[in-house]
Design a protein around this nucleic acid. Structure first.
Lengths: 187, 187
DNA sequence: ACAGCCATGTAACTTGTTACATGATTTT
DNA sequence: AAAATCATGTAACAAGTTACATGGCTGT
């Protein structure tokens, strides 16, 4: 829904053609959330099918798309109503840990460390981006970047509390708890 | 991928049949992330197609599914490798705000307030759940609940910084900036 | 017998996503 | 003329999701 509503919201601003939609979207996210051009066209055609968008004008293969009244209404509702619960969405890393603690054969602390390492690298990357913005630089970009950084930080803190929780629990841990050996699995 | 990998990880523990997978999954998430039974079967058949799972035994319509070596390997990789970037996933509410600040006709502060209100309600709901656990109550459940609460809190903080950012920016705001009147949009 | 649960499954659909094809225009 | 870029689009697939159908077994 994110993509289609985004395109619709952009068309609510002014009529646009396909590539323009892609560009505006990517500019507003500073290139962090790239959007395949093809997806713009598939999404647009689905919006057209649903009567939220119509072809306004075609000049020389260039197709200008226009939002309909129904579409305008959808956008208004989208902005008015809060997005559905953050909790409702299944979260891969959370499921992974939830299942890991149920599996006696898995060394959960190793899993946590691996995840945290990746998160901290990602965090560094985005903090660097913050001081050295790419092109757009405006408000949209700062909002987006903040959201990413906040999310990563929260996740790292969550991993920390998981670690202490697991340490406190008398969960039967693997043998080599003292020196966590690198037990690489070979294909 | 979340669902299929989850099922695979559970089958890595022991062979199970369809409903059992559903039940174990839902118990591990304390019912917060319900899983439609039908989806278990569609997902299992896809795993079978990909050679990660095989039918071990069929007794009287009850089908026991078993993980294959290839499946076991997938699970090992899943636990070893960190989940893909938290930042990579497009986030509806973030896109919504990013686009909202670009639209002069939208009152961003109203949008933020509406989102925050919903988040705080959700937060309250899950904090209540924390003191009054449903059934499972064990480690998996705490881990899951923490993740949800952390995520919501981070999002609320993010909304706050967005608000100050927007206030600081000299973005041309709607007329009624001084006393934010309840300007309900009627269909 | 009937209600309700256990258990399996499928058809249909949505959203996201990519790889590929096509043609026009512009630059080198 | 060749390469690059603009611009459009389609076929195909992955993953999630639900509504519905089927049949067996159990308790009342």
């Amino acid at each position: 829904m994110s993509v289609s509503m985004s395109l619709l919201a952009m068309l609510d601003e002014r009529p646009m053609y396909g590539l323009e939609l892609k560009n505006v979207f990517e500019e507003s996210t500073g290139g962090v959330w790239p959007l395949n051009v093809g997806q713009v066209y598939t999404t647009i055609s689905r919006l057209e099918r649903d009567g939220l968008v119509t072809l306004a004008e075609e000049t020389d293969g260039q197709k200008l798309y226009e939002i309909t009244d129904a579409g305008r209404n959808e956008v208004a509702v989208w902005f008015r109503q809060p997005s559905r619960g953050a909790a409702a969405t299944r979260d891969e890393i959370v499921i992974k840990l939830s299942l890991a603690v149920l599996k006696p054969t898995i060394d959960v602390t190793t899993v946590i460390q691996s995840e945290r390492k990746a998160l901290l690298q990602e965090l560094q990357q985005y903090t660097r981006l913050k001081t050295d913005p790419p092109t757009g630089n405006d408000l949209s970009w700062e909002i987006l970047l903040d959201s990413i950084i906040f999310k990563i930080e929260a996740r790292v803190r969550w991993l920390d509390t998981c670690e202490t929780r697991i340490a406190r629990s008398n969960r039967p841990e693997l043998r080599h708890t003292a020196q966590p050996e690198e037990s690489e699995v070979h294909t």
